[in-house]
Write a protein that binds this DNA or RNA. Structure first.
Lengths: 206, 206, 206, 206
DNA sequence: GATGAATGAGGATTCATTCAT
DNA sequence: AATGAATGAATCCTCATTCAT
């Protein structure tokens, strides 16, 4: 990712906007029409540009998909950065769960192709790098939270607990959004309840 | 799904074996080579039969994928049938969770393409029917369990609770299996703990 | 050449005829329309078959061109085999020149794309193998003739002499054929005169 | 050729230098990367200018190739001009052959794309004009030499003789140069021997 | 004049599907 | 019923050419 995923690093403002336009179109295409309809021509048509312009910036279709994944990688990393760096200490667990879950729900509502792109059927083929990296980063940070709250917990049991928490949340978040990006607050509440019920016995409530 | 997913219900033993052979090959192809390599020719080659024979039984590729989904549908429905019909009443919740989760873990370990097929990137295209049906059946049965234990619960809150439970388990089961079909018992234990912690406050422990 | 230049060795009579049909069309396309118009679609259209059928037998365009070269390789090798194996000994040089040149003129008249395919602009790219091999075989056989006639000649001067003879004939043969495959006998006579004039001082006339 | 092969005859020194730069790059591209890689963008990149600048001077790719051919045309015409205008009369034939062949060998060694450009595979398409013209000029001048030496020869037999001579030399010259532009003197000697042996019986030795 | 991003027709190749054997 | 050669629409990608800056 990065060495030849972009043919020409767009240096002008124009180029940067063009790449963004293409990725935007790619994302919509993926979210609305699905992976079968995801052709370079469809992306170009949706972006309102010619097919050649896509190949000005991406050497091939694969690179376009990679770039999309990388962009998600970047934006979600940024979200996590902001979230974990501003994490309020000494709060009740319920407060911390609110603090983390709500923005993630928002991210999922805003980025509808995110889940689609990282689906397991594609992972073994090409996505593993990006997905694995995002996850391992999240996991290590959640690890940090757990370690803060319960430094005495043996690392192995902490690891499984983190794994389960992260995957459960990841899988349930799409349920909290309907097709049009609206958030279902009752589902969000229930996801938080699940997480709290699971974690309180381990991390306590303080 | 169903009206034209199979061209001719094969009545002879020979035909039934042939369909099974094709579906077996399709499943392996999907699990091992991924969705990009999943071509009708590849399936035929793996099955050791001619491409024409696939079209003897399936009108098109779509129908083949549908049939694969339907087969999962059928086998998991059978599992659920056995499971729910033999469900021991009046047991502690933890016992019931054991009773349900363990066979499901086993099913996931045995059917590696199952998760792949029902991945979100394909759902909007073709899978919704089969997936939705399987899920709705499971959900209604779990609903039944919940209703048995807490007939007083308002249906709406019960619905969300069931939804979350089913999706969480569905998403976490793959974590309990490594690449080769071996079951990680510590992960299984943790999944059960998650489910119990979430459900006990609602359904009680009896 | 040979390991993957043909996708499927056609075993049936039908397949063998089809490959021949394709190569025939490719040859005509090359001879009449030139290398720029030589597209797989043009070849298919000329052969009156679908584009897919070409790819049934040749994995790609390159392989088709290679196969064409290989076919020339084969036919001309066969011609040389027949020619050199039946070479009458103890004849006057002029008779030997007649014996060799006339069939070669005929071959050039019949195979109009032969020269085109082995043109220098393509050679560095892909043809070198086939061309070089055909030439080296011819050269070594002509070497043999020279050695028979003048065993006392130092090998190095013989080598240059053979080289010049072979290349000159190769280059001049196309002049003896007009566009429609008719042979210009006066040009043939002059080519023989050139060759004889050059070789007599070295090989003698016996 | 000529009417639209150059968009605008560059009148400034700057423009003339630019055209030369482009042709230089085109020649190198042809000689080093071959005809398949010969794209207008590749030529622009090698010349270190923008693709637009090529189209400032050449209306299309065809014209660029034509101009390259024309440049060879021009330089070789100049060589022939110098050569034939200074042709020493009344010399032995061997001297005349030396006088003509040596400079031609030099020209071939210096212009490596020359042969490539005039290869038969391209001729039917576009080259015929330039090639034919160069050849016909050479041929008419050689005709002149023959006429000087043997005014009594019937024109038709003279024509064939000239044709054969010119083509043979043209085809053999590349053999006298190795890949790096070095001249193989023994091959040059042999080419001259061939030519002399062929011509002496007709033109005499005086 | 120079630039190079943008265009899109065209070419190589794949693969779902048909049908003669 | 089984086969697999044949088909051709659809896809990815290239590259000659234009034109706004």
């Amino acid at each position: 990712m990065g060495e030849d995923s972009v043919r020409r690093l767009p240096q002008g403002e124009r180029g940067r906007r063009r790449v963004a336009l293409i990725l935007e179109a790619a994302e919509q295409e993926l979210a609305e029409s699905g992976y079968e309809q995801f052709t370079t021509n469809a992306v170009a048509a949706r972006a309102g540009i010619s097919i050649g312009s896509i190949y000005q910036f991406f050497p091939n279709k694969e690179a376009l998909v990679q770039a999309l994944a990388a962009r998600y990688h970047e934006t979600i990393r940024k979200l996590y950065d902001d979230l974990f760096s501003g994490l309020p200490k000494g709060q009740p667990l319920a407060r911390t769960v609110d603090y983390l879950i709500d923005p993630l729900v928002g991210y999922n509502a805003r980025n509808r192709a995110f889940q689609a792109l990282f689906c397991p059927i594609l992972v073994p083929l090409r996505m593993s790098g990006a997905v694995a990296q995002v996850r391992s980063e999240v996991i290590s940070r959640v690890h940090g939270i757990f370690a803060d709250r319960r430094p005495d917990l043996p690392p192995e049991s902490r690891s499984i607990c983190v794994l389960i928490s992260v995957h459960a949340v990841e899988a349930l978040l799409p349920l909290a959004t309907d097709g049009e990006g609206e958030v279902k607050q009752d589902v969000v509440r229930e996801i938080k309840r699940l997480l709290l019920a699971y974690l309180e016995p381990i991390l306590g409530n303080a």
